[in-house]
Amino acid sequence: MEAYFIAIGIIALIYVILSLGLTLQYGLTGLINFGHVGFFAIGAYTSALLALKGVPLVFSFAAAAALAGLAAWPLGLVSLRLRDDYFAIVTLGFSEVVRIVITSERWLTNGVQGLPGIPRLYEGLGGSAAQLAVLVTVLAVTLVGAWIIRRIAGSPFGRLIEAIRDNEEAVQALGKDPARFKVQVLVVGAALAGIAGAFYAHYITYIVPDQFIPLVTFYVWMAIIMGGVGRVSGAIVGTAILMLFLEGSRFLRDIVPGVSEVDMASVRIGAVGLLLVLFIMYRPQGLMGDYTKR
């Protein structure tokens, strides 16, 4: 039983790290990033490939963050003139480009066959101790990430990016250059996604391009919208709710009588959808959202 909760915890925390990045980009700065999974994929493949070559995991994680961040930089430069929805399309396209490059460059990524046997974290500890150690590590990284985002939000830099979100012209009129700040925000958020990707690769131990579809991005979006946009607590609580819906529904079978085992799988997915719809209907600003503004 504990091992199952630890597994859910690890996956949930990986999603929290992803949503922290998006909180910074969308919640604070207003950049609609629909390509988050692209940076997640870059992180996962970078760390996995290095680790399979024998590079110590400390360095492969650092490389994952660095490369994912670097990938965001040119994207930021070319698309800064684009507003809101246009930017969203570019990022969505970017994540698909990443996926297709990974699929096609078989000499590097083994293409659609994927990379099996990625080393795990704390392999030496073995069994449940290793799982617990992974959970603690991801938790620590998440907390540090959350703390950094909170610090950013409270700093002059944070107020500036919030001003960009609320009124970009006003920021320009005050003599600040929004472009530079947007690039910085993109890079930091992407680096966080890269770290999340590295954890994912070393936890699942097998990655293949099919895992990095836009659905992942939209899970993260669902999480931050349910939790409350622009709040660090929202990112955390939102992911928790999403995981509760997705995993809790597995136990539906125990409480709903009269549905066959096979039908249950479809009922379950339906129930998740219904819960998400109801949640947004009754809590449109998210659980931890800012209720002072309308």
Binding site: M1, Y4, A7, I8, D210, Q211, E247, R250, E261, A265
Partner: peptide
């Protein structure tokens, strides 16, 4: 005795489903 789970044909969902089958 059979306990059923759905993989959703997705590795991530399958890992969590398998964890549940094995541990719970």
């Amino acid at each position: 005795e059979i306990v059923s789970e759905d993989t959703q044909t997705s590795p991530q969902a399958a890992v969590l489903a398998a964890k549940k089958l094995i541990d719970v």
